[in-house]
Every structure is written in structure tokens, then in C-alpha cells.
Amino acid sequence: MNSKFLGTGVALVTPFKSDLTIDHDALANIVNFNIENGVEYLVVCGTTAESVTITKQEKQDIIETISKTANGRVPLVLGIGGNNTALVIEEIKSTDLSNIDAILSVSPYYSKPTQEGVYQHFKAVSEASPVDIILYNVPGRTSKNMEVATTLRLANDFKNIIAVKEAGNNVSQYLELIKNKPEDFLIISGDDDLALGIVLAGGAGVISVIGQGFPKEFSEMIRLGLKGEVRESYKLHFRLMDVIGYIFEENNPAGIKAVFETLGLCRDSVRLPLVPASNPLKEKIKSFINKF
């Protein structure tokens, strides 16, 4: 069992200054805030990091800031995925992965490949990658579900495919994966609202968005869940439940950036086509944090 990815990973945001350049000081503060409050690992340049509007050079700079700040204290997972298999492979081969423990690779989006196409894509990614791979199934964004049979086929066929971040918001799909997975393969929740229930059913933890705003409480909730302490873990779940809904109400990461702005960790700026959270939503978030 790859224990370094048990528990809570957080999909870090990319903080921007008012001119929309990257705010590396704020990024370093967010990394420290999360490590000091107990998250188990960090996910760099995932969807929440607005990776589609980040340049190649910016991505390298982000990796550098996070690696330097984390300084080996927690494992790092790097988002490298896409719907052009050749380009994904090229990026894997041309990226310095010496500080990276695994890559998180999203199922090909927009092109709508068949299940065989998804399998062949990840087979090629697996053969190219010198580090472990966490598959990422997010049908709400890719418009194509990676079916249980495909995930399990990949899990059984490739040693370096060690986990799936499942974010289909589909409990029965999660349970089928947990029931039928190879023993050391990890089922990681990508749905903050379902994460605790999935952990209690045998999941390995979560790659969370809200976790980076409330790292202490969220990572403790998941640890309690992994120990099977149902009542205690649900107490924390119920405390966080409203804000989990709020941050996804308009778009991600505008919601979590509104949390960070209230906490004084970074501005709420996002790059187009995303826009910041609306004032009514910001007020709800502010009032939640003040009471929390």
C-alpha cells in the first residue's frame, strides 16, 4: 500500500496579484499553512490551480516555489494530463520530476474517446512515466466517464498506476471500485462532500479543494475516518458541510480563493474565462468563516 498518499492531499490554487501575475509569496504561505496544519501531501498544477491558463514557464516556476517551500516535508503530486497523448508524454519526458512523487493525470477530455481509447492513452502515459501515476476521473469536466472496468484494468496491468482520484460524485461507482480493486491500489475521493463516507467505506483519503482552506479540521476528519472513528469524524464533517457547498456554487477555484481572501492568504483574482466569486457568495463565505 502506497502509504504516502493515505489521508488528505490538497489541490493547491495558483494565487495571482492584481495584475494576474503569479503571487509566489502567497503561494509559499499557503503551502506552509497546509503543511503546518497537517495535510499529508500537496497536488501541484491540478484543475484548481487554473492549469489551463498557466504557461509552461509559469508551471516550472510554480513547481520550484512549492518544492522549495515544502522542502521534502510532504510528498508532491504534479498534474500532467490532457487530450493529446503525444503532448502529455512529451511533457512527462521534458519535466524535471526529481522532487515529484507521482503525477496526477486526468482522463482525456473533450475528445470523448471510447473506454479502449482511455486505456490506450494511460498505457502510453504509464510507459513514459518514471514516477507513479494517479489516474483522475472527473466526468463532469471531461464529459466522459472512465468506467470501473477500465480503471481496474489499468490498475491490474501497470505497476506504476497506483491510485485513482475518482470525482464522478457517484457513490455506487466508488463502492464498486473499493470492492473490486487490487489490494494495494488506492481509491482517492475527488469529491469533498463525499470524502468522509468514501474513506469509511475503504477509500484511501481525498484530494481536496476545501481542505487547503481548513487544513487542520479537514485532514483530522479524514484521519479519524481512516481509523473508523465514525461519530468524531462526522462532527467535523458537519462543521464544514456548508462551506463545501459554497465553494463549488459558482466555479472552482473562485470559491476557495474567496475563502483565502477572507483568511488573508491571497487575493481572489482568477484568470478569464473564470471570474471572481460574486458579492453575495463572498458574504456567505465570510460569515461562515467568522462563525467557524
Rank of each mutant, 00 (worst) to 15 (best):
L42F: 04
K17T: 13
T47C: 03
C45D: 04
D19P: 00
S51P: 00
D25F: 08
G72S: 06
L78I: 10
I22E: 01
I80R: 14
E40T: 05
F16D: 14
Y41I: 10
L20H: 09
Y41A: 02
A28M: 03
P15V: 14
V44P: 01
N37Y: 05
T21V: 03
K59L: 14
L76T: 12
E36K: 13
R73F: 01
E50V: 11
L27P: 10
K17S: 13
I35Y: 07
K68D: 07
N34L: 06
I63L: 03
V39T: 08
T53V: 15
G79K: 15
H24Y: 15
T48S: 04
I35M: 07
R73S: 02
K17R: 13
Y41F: 14
Y41V: 05
D19T: 10
V43W: 07
I54D: 03
G46I: 04
K56M: 08
T21R: 00
G38I: 09
K59Y: 10
H24I: 12
D19C: 12
T47L: 08
V39A: 04
V43C: 02
E40S: 06
Q60G: 07
G46R: 03
T53R: 06
G81K: 14
L78T: 02
R73C: 00
I35R: 11
E50A: 07
G72Y: 15
V31A: 06
N34E: 03
V31F: 05
V44C: 01
N71P: 02
F33W: 15
S67I: 07
T21S: 15
T48V: 10
C45R: 07
A26H: 02
P75V: 14
Q60M: 13
R73Q: 02
V77I: 14
F16M: 13
S18C: 11
I35C: 05
V31I: 08
T21Q: 09
K68W: 00
G79Q: 11
T48R: 12
I22A: 01
V77N: 12
L78C: 03
K56V: 10
K68I: 01
E58T: 03
S67Q: 12
T69F: 11
L76W: 15
N37R: 12
L78E: 01
D23N: 12
E58D: 05
L20G: 07
D23T: 09
T65W: 00
T69H: 06
D23S: 02
V74T: 11
V43P: 00
K59G: 04
G72M: 13
I22S: 00
T53L: 08
D25T: 09
G81F: 13
S18N: 15
